[in-house]
């Protein structure tokens, strides 16, 4: 349960978000044009940036959580993975998801390693587990990020433009997994990929002119899309079914 209470964001003299108020009980997809504040909202939900207003997860302010406790509630999957250590293996990377559960100064336990292994198997990455991250393709990296988030065993997972760098085939694989995760997690999806959003079929929050328009269902009509994106959209470009 995420409660957003009159969240506002201003940069210099430009208002990005004004007074967004929304209770997210169900899954959610956030859509909107470039610069409409989607990523800002996602970062605020993760507690990475502090905006005006308030965000509560399970009736507690996100900034009042201990960092590790917050990590057990919410996992964030970025669009792109940047890393400095070129030799870190996929297996080691996925294991980081267990950091919030690890006692300070202690090694990861066998249970932690078991959870990580299960998630690697679930996403069919076993053959790559000893490979360094730097050798993986974008599609494989996206799966590695997902495996790490799953290892974190959080209640909520936020996907920040998961298909932005992927080819149609990998996009479909990722889409299938996101849909599957709706059974076990509360998902928040941020995307420009209307086909993906349609396939995932979450309620939609459309950000436009600093405001949020909430659609519980029936969002994906040509009329809605054309009106909100201000461009003729006749049919959904990519079909994920």
């Amino acid at each position: 349960m995420i409660e957003i209470d009159s969240l506002s964001c201003k940069y210099a003299n430009k208002t990005v978000l004004s007074e967004i108020t929304l209770d997210i009980e169900d899954h959610l997809t956030i859509l909107g044009a470039n610069g409409s504040g989607k990523s800002t909202l996602a970062k605020a939900l993760c507690g990475l940036i502090r905006l005006e207003g308030k965000i509560e997860i399970d009736a507690q302010d996100i900034f009042e959580y201990d960092a590790k406790e917050r990590a057990k509630k919410i996992a964030y999957i970025p669009t792109k993975l940047e890393f400095y250590d070129e030799f870190i293996t996929l297996e080691e990377f996925v294991l980081f998801g267990r950091f919030p559960y690890k006692a300070s100064f202690m090694n990861y336990t066998d249970k932690d390693k078991k959870v990580a292994r299960e998630k690697i198997e679930l996403l069919e990455l076993c053959t790559l587990s000893k490979h360094p991250l730097s050798s993986l393709s974008s599609g494989e990296t996206a799966l590695a990020l997902m495996a790490q988030a799953l290892t974190q065993e959080s209640d909520i997972i936020i996907f920040d433009e998961p298909t932005a760098n992927l080819d149609p085939r990998n996009s479909k694989i990722i889409a299938k997994h996101i849909k599957g995760l709706k059974q076990t997690h509360q998902t928040v999806l941020i995307t420009h990929d209307i086909g993906l959003a349609n396939f995932i079929a979450n309620p939609v929050l459309f950000l436009k002119n600093t405001e949020g328009f909430y659609f519980k269902k029936d969002f994906f009509t040509d009329e809605n899309l054309s009106r909100l994106y201000e461009v003729e959209i006749e049919s959904l470009a990519v079909k994920y079914e």
């Binding site: 993760c46 990475l48 917050r70 996992a75 980081f96 998801g97 950091f99 919030p100 690890k102 990861y108």
Partner: peptide, 18 residues
């Protein structure tokens, strides 16, 4: 382990509870 997390990015380390 903290260093290993930080070698990814400060943001991702924060999201893992560091």
């Amino acid at each position: 382990f903290e260093l290993q997390l930080l070698s990814i990015s400060e943001e991702s380390a924060l999201m893992k509870g560091l």
